[in-house]
Simulated assay, not measured.
Amino acid sequence: MALPKGFLFDFDGVIVDSKESHNSAWASAFKELFNTEIAPFPKELSGKSPLIIARYFCSVISKENRTNDLYNLKDEHLDKYFTVPKLLPGIREITQFLSEKKIPYGIASNATKQFLKNSIRHLDLNFTTVFGLQDYVKPKPAPEAYISLAKALNFKEEDFKDLWVFEDSLTGTNAARLAGMQPIGITTCYSKEELKAVGSVLTFQTVLEAYQYLTTK
């Protein structure tokens, strides 16, 4: 099997389990701002821009006008009370494999740049090309994130069909599909049926499974 020309990774739910990191920052920021408990996190917001998530939480208590305040404070709490996310299986294996094969790879996430940098540093991950929320005019589900990353890795548009994009959310899968790339579903949050319905060409439970698929074919 010919290997893809490049591999683009989402972060949350693909490389790390960061639910605790994000949820605790949302909860503490919301409590500080409004002196009340935050609503449960809805699954359909997985992978969305933090600004959209902030707008949702504010709308629950009819405080949409405070969306930017919550967004900014959550980002502060995420950094100030940083919780190292849990590394998911297969990341060290696949990055070592891609490095040995000289296949370009990088991260494009809707998470903020500071959270990505903190996480990569604490987990000692081998990712040097990393795009976060502040790098886009239009975050996922728009294709800009993955197009920007692919170009930074020196791929041309005609290469996009030969790029794998690891995604666990419907939002990110749509972004990869709209970019003309090959969405590869990781079933952290959604089932293989749900991911395939929006464009995933293959699905795996973890990146480790994908790595094993790539190295045993």
Rank of each mutant, 00 (worst) to 15 (best):
E93T: 06
K43F: 07
E76N: 11
F30R: 00
E93L: 13
K43P: 00
I94T: 02
F41N: 01
Y56V: 05
L78S: 14
N65V: 09
F30L: 07
F82H: 05
H77E: 14
G90R: 00
V60Q: 11
K63I: 07
Y56M: 03
C58I: 01
N68R: 09
A54V: 08
K31F: 12
E44R: 10
E93A: 09
I103Q: 10
L51Y: 13
D79P: 04
L45P: 01
L70H: 05
N68Y: 12
T36W: 00
N68L: 13
E64T: 10
S59G: 07
K101G: 01
S62R: 12
L33A: 05
L88P: 02
S59K: 11
C58Y: 03
K63T: 04
P89H: 04
K80D: 15
L33N: 07
K63G: 02
F34I: 04
S99Y: 08
C58Q: 03
L45N: 04
L88R: 03
R55E: 15
E64Q: 10
D75M: 08
K74N: 04
S49M: 07
A29P: 08
Y56W: 11
T36I: 11
A54N: 00
L87I: 08
D69G: 02
P40A: 14
S49F: 05
F97G: 00
P42G: 03
I38P: 02
L98H: 03
F57C: 02
F82V: 06
N68P: 05
L87C: 09
P42A: 05
V84A: 07
P50E: 14
L88Y: 04
F41E: 01
F34H: 08
C58N: 06
L78N: 12
V84E: 10
I52H: 09
I38S: 02
F97H: 05
N65Q: 12
K63D: 05
S49L: 06
N68H: 11
I61F: 12
I38R: 09
T36M: 12
A39H: 12
D79I: 15
F57L: 04
R55P: 07
G47M: 02
F97Q: 02
N35G: 06
T83H: 11
T83E: 11
L51H: 12
L98Y: 06
Y71F: 15
G90Q: 01
A29S: 15
F30P: 00
L33S: 05
F57Y: 14
F82K: 00
A54L: 04
A39C: 09
T36A: 10
I38L: 06
S62N: 15
E37N: 15
S59R: 09
L78C: 09
K86E: 13
P50H: 09
I52W: 04
D75L: 05
E32L: 14
S99K: 15
S59E: 13
P40L: 10
